[in-house]
Structure formats: C-alpha cells, structure tokens
Design a binder for these strands. Structure first.
Lengths: 242, 242
DNA sequence: TCAGTCTGTTACAACTCATTACAAAGTCAG
DNA sequence: CTGACTTTGTAATGAGTTGTAACAGACTGA
C-alpha cells in the first residue's frame, strides 16, 4: 500500500518462478513487479522506479549477464543474480562482480528475501546522489551543524553541544532527508551494532535529539515518526562545502 | 567521496576482471584505480598514493611475482596476489616473496573485499615510513615536528619539549590521520606493550599531549575522542623529507 | 469500542572518559 | 653512589554518555 515499500523487479523467463517469487515478496511486505526478458525489463525500468532487481542469468535473447553489466555501469539499481547451480557459478564468481549478490537455483525464498533485505539495507546506507560527509557545514531549519567540530548552532548563535551518539544520529538523518529509516538501519548507521531483542536505544537517542533541535518536542516537525516503520527527517538540508 | 578512503590499485591484464573489481570496490566505499600491466602499475605508483595493490600473477611482459618482489623490497605497499590456479607452488612462492595475502581465481568478490579490509587493518598498525630514519619533518596545524630531534615547534617559533612517550604517541597519530585508533592499538604502537587489566595510561598520555598541542585543551580540535572507540587525529599532516 | 501493538519518556544502572594526585621507575650531574 | 628531577603507570574521583526497564499514552484494525 505505501509507496515507500521497496520495489523489486523480478526478471526470469520461467513464468512459474517469477510469479511465485513475486507473490512471496509481496506477502513479505515488498512491492514486486515481473518481466520475462531483458528487453521487457529495460522497458519497465524506463517508466518505473525500482529499488532492486532480481535477475536470472540464463534467458533467451539478451541474457542476464549483459543486462546486469549495463545496469551496473549506470550504477543506479542494485542487482541480485540468479544462477543455475553448477553451470555458471564460476563465471559469476570470477567475472560478474558488479552484481551486489547472487543466489544459486534452486533457491530458498527465505534466503533470497534475506539477501534482498541485506542489499537494500546496504543501498540505503550508501547515499547515491552526493556524499555530504566532506561538507564542512550542514544547515537545516535554521540550524547550522559544523561537522568537523561536531557543533550545532541555532539561528540565535547559541551553540548546542551534541553527544557522540546524538551527532551521528543527526548526521544519519541529514544525509538522507525524507527517507524512512528503520531502527535497525539507524542502529547500524550510528554505532554499527546489530539490534538486540528489545532495543529501544534508538528511541531514546531520537528523544534526546528531538529535545535539543525541535522547537516543540511534543509535536516534532523535523524528525517524524513513521508508525511501524521508523523515523524520517523532513526538512530541507543544505550542505556547504567551504 | 572522501579522499581519505583507502586507495586500491588493481593490476590485471584482463579488462573485464579489473574494471568490474574496481567498480565493486568503489561501490563498497573504497577508492580504486586500475593498471593493465606491471609497467603501467609502476608508473602509476610514482604519482599516486596507494594503500594496497591487488595484483594478478599471470601477466604478459613483466609478471606479477616480479613486481610483487620489488614492491615488497621497498616495503611501502601491502600486496594481495591473484593466482590463476590454486597450485601450491604459486602459493608458496607468493607468500615467501612477502605478499600479504593471496586469492585464487575464480574468486568471490566479497571474500576478496574481506581480505582487503583485513590487510588494511593490519597495515594500519605498521607505519609506512616514507623516509626511514633521518631528517623527516611533519607539519600540522601550525606545528612543526622534527622527528630526528624529537622537537616540536609552534608557529611562533617556540620549541615545546616532548617526552619519549608523548613523542611516540604524536608520531603514531601523525602517521594515521583521521583513523580511529583504539587504546590497545595506541599502546601497541607507542610501547609495544599489551594492555593490562585497567589501563588508563593512554588516556594520560593523550591528556598530557593535548595540554601541549591543543590551543584549548578543554575542547580538543586535533586529537578527538571517539566514544567507545579510541582517539582520532583530525588535522592535515604534511610529510616533508628534508 | 477494545485489545493488542507500537511509541515517548522517565528513571536508573552500567559504562566511558578527563583529570588530579601519587608512587614507582628511570635519568643524570656531581 | 647519591639526590634532585623527569617520566610514566596506577588509582581515585567526578562528570558525561548510553542501554535497559518500565509504564503510560497513542495508534491500528477488527
């Protein structure tokens, strides 16, 4: 329902495989589309935003490797390759390293889903368009963040000190405005940890950060909660590399 | 992308392999350059700073082993060898020559990346002395450190004496700017000791060093604390061999 | 509406760090 | 060899940071 669910394109010439996989992905909360050939996939990609492609290698017409190669060259969409068991494996492993991952057929759909999630997670963590890491200052909603000094300054010139965790969390948000970040993603971004069972540490950091940067912490304007999804940073961010 | 990401040089005569590997490395957050022969690699190394070389053994012209041998002799850059066949003779020769690791083709790019990271981690602890002994001068943030005389001079020309421990700590930082060094690593680098149970000695040395080189020791600009991680030196360092 | 789930916040304990003080070890001139 | 001086590790203290638990309130879907 939400258009913010990741959109997966499944490309395979076997109808059964692609339909069942698409169904499984939808059942798992992802959006899924299908294409039966490289040509159809190319056409589809021109009109729709796709977050990840699951691509069979062996197909009549233009084969998967070829499509993969050109996708990787443009570098906009992560790719997971499906390879027949013994046959192409060596070729894949040795040559087609532009793909983000590969899975050998017959595959366990749960494992494939896990790999899809892993790749999406990695992709979300690596912003594609620009890399504000080098930017000296980030400004948003009247605030100015000096990245080098880890210092946040308000419009009135008052400096607000940020703890290490708060700073990293804020930078994670500023690098990805308007992107919904799950708690797991944020945890990985801020401390590289994997979440424990009951982990509310991100909630706490968000709460502490909101107290510092929100005009009225009771009604958050900058860091908004996405119920059941995570958090989003909703202000415009300017990065000025001075 | 930050120019402080590790820089990898991929040397292989097969265009597909080196280009795709380079792309994969870049996607993984590293900088990557390519060379199609030992000769081109040598040329490249003269003009660019490279942190690690991935080197194919079997190449027309001067082969990989030969290049590897001379690289190891100068001892400046770690090397990972790519061997076409998993023959024991190749492995033994490669490692005896002093390569840091080797990977057999066809290789799994993820595994290769893991090995690259491992070697870089190890290499971080072994300083690359561009100039082995004499007459090295390191400058940073207005300070000038005469390595031979162990003397630190400020912009105003005032000399600040450093104790042995302070000097070693400072050098350890200066050789690895922007790299987070744990207390254990710093302890190893400065005195070669392994940490005791409750070891705050590094904290102390850092504190003493900060008092000498930081404009305002209360808000450190040069040596920054990484909470839960260690310390980082964050200024640009120029290494002038005089 | 209502039960179940998810979130915000507080409180607290555990942990990390900076600095001071001090004692042990090392250095060096006389 | 001796005694002053320097250097350095250990301890202790206090401040700051972070994760976990707990609970109340908000949200969702039936």
């Amino acid at each position: 329902m939400s258009e913010h669910e990741p959109h997966i394109l499944v490309v395979d010439d076997h109808r059964d495989i692609r339909e069942q996989l698409a169904r499984y992905l939808r059942k798992s909360g992802l959006r899924a589309s299908v294409a039966d050939s490289a040509a159809q996939a190319r056409k589809f990609l021109k009109s729709a935003a796709v977050d990840l492609i699951v691509l069979d290698i062996m197909m009549p017409g233009e084969d998967g490797l070829s499509l993969c190669r050109s996708l990787v060259e443009t570098g906009t969409v992560p790719v997971i390759l499906l390879t027949a068991m013994a046959e192409d494996t060596d070729r894949i492993v040795g040559l087609e390293i532009g793909a983000d991952d590969y899975v050998t057929k017959p595959f366990n759909p749960r494992e494939l889903l896990a790999r899809i999630r892993a790749v999406l997670r990695r992709a979300a963590l690596v912003p594609r368009d620009r890399d504000p890491v080098d930017a000296e200052t980030l400004t948003f909603a009247g605030w100015t963040l000096d990245v080098a000094k880890r210092l946040l300054t308000g419009e009135d010139g008052v400096a607000v000190p940020l703890s290490s965790g708060e700073f990293q969390l804020l930078v994670a948000f500023l690098k990805r405005p308007r992107m919904v970040l799950s708690r797991d993603q944020l945890l990985d971004l801020t401390s590289g940890r994997t979440p424990g069972v009951f982990d509310r540490s991100i909630d706490n950091q968000v709460s502490r950060l909101r107290r510092k940067i929100e005009p009225d912490p009771k009604t958050p304007e900058l860091i908004k909660t996405v119920w059941g999804g995570g958090y989003t940073f909703t202000a415009d961010v300017q990065d000025t590399a001075s």
